[in-house]
Design a protein around this nucleic acid. Structure first.
Lengths: 340, 340
DNA sequence: CTGAAAGCGCTAACAG
DNA sequence: CTGTTAGCGCTTTCAG
């Protein structure tokens, strides 16, 4: 293994000077620097991470604690976003998947300590409030897709209310007035917030909000819910005065709405417009017609979590944090059409 | 920060003895051990990873080099499988996503070196041959979902041929004799292997293989292909003597086949049985009826990659490796039915 | 079974 | 601008 000393010897300088070059310290004569750089390249020297980190007392590793985010199709983008931001300055991400297991989570906190991670991103599968308790709060933590009601941590979450507004407003603008809703589990925070967004949009267009046109697309407790969007959609579409458009709580629901519509001989978007949520490309781009939906900005959330962490003061402040809201963009495809 | 010495001082022993306890060295009096363990718990001591690794010269970190695997919905399971195996003995996974970029890949190889990773799992998105070249071959590498034609690395891949056989055999057993195929891009290795599997199954049941009943579900070059399974299925289903079942190259294709069938007023599985591949739960469990499909054993591949690495000799052998084949299990749901 | 000394590769602190 | 010295936290000798 090639070490700093090998480089120093070969370049005829001291170890410290090589160290300076490796760390981009400007206080090195440019000729000396070039010579050292040449030796580094020739020997293919790579600084030892462990040694640097031991000396520095901190590491270039950031921990990502998740329940199931890192391994769930539509939220891996949080990982990608964080890695993208980290990679630019040679840092790395240590990913911990608790699968919701508290014991495992504790084990991972120790692992983070062993690795002296410089910060932790705590990401959850569902947009929800979260209480981390005290023990680990000394360290730099950023909450992603969740937030602390006490406001003791910076947090970044999707703007579900605006997302709901975008869903409804788009259909209203296209002229729809009887709009059905097949929603997420109503206890979910996302569901509540989007509901508020719908109402705002409906009010703006002077369209009364008819609770009777709304059905839950899932039943059962969170975590083991069953999807019943197919039945919900059938129910909605068999009404004497059926809706001309359906807003869905996510793209899976939209997928079942497609199926229900087809079984009734209704075609999309001629007879029915469908609006999804999540922008899971696997579904949205594969459905025929391709699904118009609202995206969850997970990549952005991951990327910005790293930025927020970088901007955090070294000592924990007493300041209260408001969750940062990231907009959910409308992704227009072919499942919504304008009506008279 | 609590160090080994703090524990030693408090327990009234030398640092080395504490080190022995931490490393499960049996040569410690059990009373001494218990006393030390108590102090460790009391002080909440966590051994410093960097220091250990520096001394040991190797680390407990394994690198995962991927093209897009780690961030692709249906292959994140490789990551989960590998992490699951590593976690059991306190090791961790350093994930590198090259997104197919050679420059980035080289950067990541250096990162792996800096971290002194004890081994590397090289996983690809598609089951394919791969030439890694020479430079990094000194280290311990396991190929996952790909293999080296030269056989200079251990490799583990899904048994696509058997998977194809399972798809066809299941339908044949249910009595189907006119079976359509909407396949993957035919240049893909998976496609070729599964084709061989189909033929074996057809031959066993004395059913002639009709090339005319096969259509590609994707067109265009790999990486930017377009899905045209909908049209392919329409074409197949409009034939005078339409197939009673369709085998799909993946679950996305199956999704479009569902759409095509619905548009023709055909219902699944009464009028048509559909068989998927991949077992992407997002699709397979959401389709109505739920999709019978064949699973890609990615979790297993990830898990076993770690095991294979552990069993590798320290010095690279000249021996030739045959790729290890992992079976693809049939996952029965509701989209296939028996016919007379 | 236990301890003392040495040193892994690197950088902070301080001189020159 | 460059070098010297010391030491991060741990484990490997090698002695007790």
């Amino acid at each position: 293994m090639v070490t700093l000393r090998d480089v120093a010897r070969m370049a005829g300088v001291s170890a410290k000077t090589v160290s300076r070059v490796v760390n981009d310290d400007p206080a090195v004569h440019s000729e000396t620097r070039d010579a050292i750089l040449a030796v580094i390249r020739q020997l293919d020297y790579v600084p030892d991470h462990a040694a640097r980190m031991m000396r520095a007392g901190t590491s270039s590793v950031v921990g990502l604690m998740t329940d199931v985010v890192a391994t769930t199709p539509y939220s891996v983008d949080i990982v990608r976003g964080a890695q993208d931001a980290l990679r630019r300055d040679g840092r790395t991400l240590l990913i911990a998947n608790t699968e919701g297991d508290r014991v495992l989570e504790r084990e991972y906190w120790r692992m983070f300590r062993a690795h002296k991670v410089s910060g932790v991103i705590y990401a959850t599968m569902y947009h929800r409030p979260l209480d981390l308790g005290e023990p680990e709060f000394a360290r730099t933590i950023v909450l992603a897709n969740c937030f602390s009601p006490k406001g003791d941590c910076p947090a970044i979450v999707p703007d579900d209310e605006l997302g709901g507004y975008a869903q409804a407003a788009h259909l209203l603008r296209l002229g729809h007035r009887r709009i059905g809703i097949v929603s997420l589990n109503p206890v979910l925070r996302a569901s509540v917030l989007r509901g508020a967004g719908f109402r705002t949009a409906f009010a703006e267009f002077d369209v009364p909000f008819e609770p009777d046109l709304e059905r839950p697309g899932f039943t059962g407790p969170i975590g083991e819910e069953m999807i019943v969007a197919y039945e919900a959609a059938l129910d909605l579409l068999r009404r004497p005065n059926r809706p001309t458009a359906i807003i869905c709580g996510n793209d899976k629901i939209a997928m079942q709405v497609y199926g229900a519509a087809a079984s009734l001989g209704l075609s999309i978007p001629q007879d029915l417009s469908v609006m999804g949520f999540d922008d899971m490309t696997v579904i949205a781009e594969t459905l025929r017609p391709a699904l118009t939906t609202v995206g969850l900005p997970y990549f952005e959330i991951g990327r910005r979590s790293v930025e927020i962490m970088a901007g955090l003061p070294a000592a924990p402040q007493a300041e209260r944090h408001q969750p940062i809201l990231v907009p959910c963009p409308l992704v227009e495809r072919d499942s919504c059409r304008a009506i008279a």
